[in-house]
């Protein structure tokens, strides 16, 4: 394939971006820290809870998210690319039926939404979904 000027520019920008990003703390670690604070470093199981999120968010301002955590006492949602990773914590009371909840959240950019559930037996479960957040062409 002939290297066009556009390709060269893209390559150049890409490597510059890579270089500058490696100097910054990765955003994912803010969420990791927050999760570790919640779990005390305990292992995160997977497969017992589910997170529903769109693949592509039509608008980062209002992204519908659902979490279903049978057997959970509480569920915390994180967004690993947001300025602050905590989104919400749901504590289920004795009259909660299915330990599930839906809400609408703000996502600043393409990132992972992470749900961490504290189960009745004290263990932790995790579910993750990647949501692409786009910039509209014609916001008005």
């Amino acid at each position: 394939m002939k290297l066009t000027r556009r390709d060269l520019l893209a390559l150049g920008t890409g490597s510059f971006a890579m270089a500058s990003l490696s100097a910054l703390p990765a955003f994912a670690s803010l969420a990791d820290d927050a999760i570790a604070a919640l779990t005390g470093g305990a292992e995160l199981g997977e497969g017992a809870i589910s997170l529903t999120a769109p693949e592509i968010a039509e608008n980062g301002n209002t992204v519908p998210i659902g979490v279903d955590a049978p057997g959970a006492v509480e569920v915390t949602l994180y967004a690993d690319g947001n300025p602050t990773p905590n989104v919400a914590t749901f504590k289920f009371g004795p009259l909660s039926a299915s330990r599930s909840a839906s809400t609408r959240i703000r996502l600043a950019s393409t990132q992972n939404v992470i749900a961490v559930a504290k189960m009745e037996d004290g263990s932790f479960q995790m579910a993750k979904a990647n949501v692409k957040v786009t910039i509209g062409g014609c916001g008005g």
Binding site: I135, G136, G137, C138
Partner: peptide
């Protein structure tokens, strides 16, 4: 946009 290009993506907006 709205007559000649509806249905097309403008960046990530569906016109």
């Amino acid at each position: 946009c709205h007559e000649d290009n509806y249905g097309v993506m403008i960046r990530a907006d569906h016109l």
